[in-house]
Design a protein around this nucleic acid. Structure first.
Lengths: 245, 245
DNA sequence: AAGTGGTCTAGACCACTCA
DNA sequence: GAGTGGTCTAGACCACTTG
């Protein structure tokens, strides 16, 4: 029982305890109380601390493992995932080289600007009329060959001061960790298009070359849009791999 | 405890009980003992029948719900999913109309043939040199306009007599249910291509028109490939939506 | 009111890792 | 051998649906 200690769970709420626990533990991660890569207390200690049974605590921890916040290893412990690791960064990247390997490659940042969100940005990012965004243009290269040029928009409210950063990461997982956001799901729309002048120049292909357009929105754990990216891909040596589960 | 009754779980196996239970219950579905759309016994009755605690039985049932085999509804019961329902059929279809709705549309079957699996079929379907496949060619239409032409291969060993069927379903979920297969995950490779003569004719577009190529393998619950489909899409009014979890 | 799944408890024992 | 997560038990109580 909670007794009279002040803990972030509420016995009188109708929200299931294990969800309240998840929220409380997730907050410890996003607030930096539990740091990436470190171990957290074991299940029974946490259960005692929060005044719940270990089964209920386990349900919360298992859920968080499914949300890529934690990794549990039998005999070792429970660890906070480092979102800047390659493994976590690749979660949202479904572009593969012909050999099946995920493509990370080098990235060249072309431009960073700030402005009022336009119609499409407001739609995709769920913003209001006067909300502002940061816009980044980048080119991704495999070896020396550019295969994707992208335009990315971030709500300024979620990434304050991003424009003052020297080299803002091109990985949304890294940015999110720096700005203490926990990422959840994403969706990506894939269609076909033609290279306009800008895209053609940056990809080094003729004007009107057929290209793949990737339109991706990444959300945080609560479903709020965090990043909108439009990528223009010359998929001569790559393909997109969608897992259907 | 199991006592001396013969039940398909084994206390001496190292495989966790809840996984053995899942297998046993899945078998009841695939064998037709539990029919699509019907309710199965409640949790505590099942637990008693198998001689396990209700918590362990629950873990198996929850897992099967995650595998789209069952649907559980508080106050009502646990039901076997009907894989021929629209909802289940749409699981593997990520093609959307511009308005965001899933595209089902009409389907025209062009050709059904049988033959030895070629190199790519053996690769994608994990077949041996002398294994045979059924091949189906179809055209999918939205309204009166064809937007995808597809070539699909099925191992004959999994779909015996498919060539004698009058109108074999174009939905893998329906075929699987008819042939008592339980479906698991799928992966889809998306790339860009050009319409060859056949594709151009069937889609009603000029030769060499840029098209989206969808290369999909559907597996059963045990990970065995069940269907390989290559779709050639004229995505003027559609796009592909990938969920990233 | 009866029956269902959903949550929660308070343990026990096992499998695995590491000093 | 001490400590961890993974499995399993045998219940209790709650929320929801239906006759």
């Amino acid at each position: 029982m909670l007794g009279d200690r002040m803990l972030p769970t509420n016995r009188f709420s109708t929200r299931p305890l294990y969800l309240q626990l998840r929220d409380a533990l997730a907050e410890r991660i996003s607030h930096g109380e539990w740091k990436p890569g470190t171990a957290i207390p074991n299940e029974s200690d946490l259960a005692r601390e929060f005044g719940v049974s270990s089964g209920t605590m386990r349900k919360a921890l298992d859920m968080m493992e499914g949300e890529h916040l934690l990794t549990r290893r039998q005999g070792r412990g429970t660890f906070v995932n480092d979102q800047s690791s390659d493994e976590m960064a690749m979660r949202f990247n479904n572009v593969r080289a012909k050999d099946g390997q995920r493509v990370s490659g080098r990235v060249r940042t072309v431009e960073l600007t700030e402005g009022k969100a336009n119609d499409r940005e407001r739609d995709r990012l769920g913003l209001q009329v006067n909300d502002a965004v940061y816009r980044l243009r980048r080119v991704r290269l495999q070896g020396d060959r550019p295969f994707m040029t992208e335009e990315t928009s971030y709500p300024t409210s979620l990434f304050p001061g991003l424009n003052d950063t020297k080299n803002p990461s091109h990985r949304i997982t890294v940015l999110a960790q720096q700005y203490r956001l926990l990422l959840g799901k994403a969706e990506e729309r894939i269609s076909i298009g033609k290279a306009n002048q800008t895209v053609a120049t940056e990809l080094g292909v003729p004007l009107d070359t057929p290209i793949i357009v990737l339109d991706r929105v990444v959300h945080d754990l609560d479903g709020r849009p965090v990043e909108w990216r439009t990528g223009y891909c010359n998929f001569t040596d790559q393909y997109y791999l969608a897992d259907i589960g």
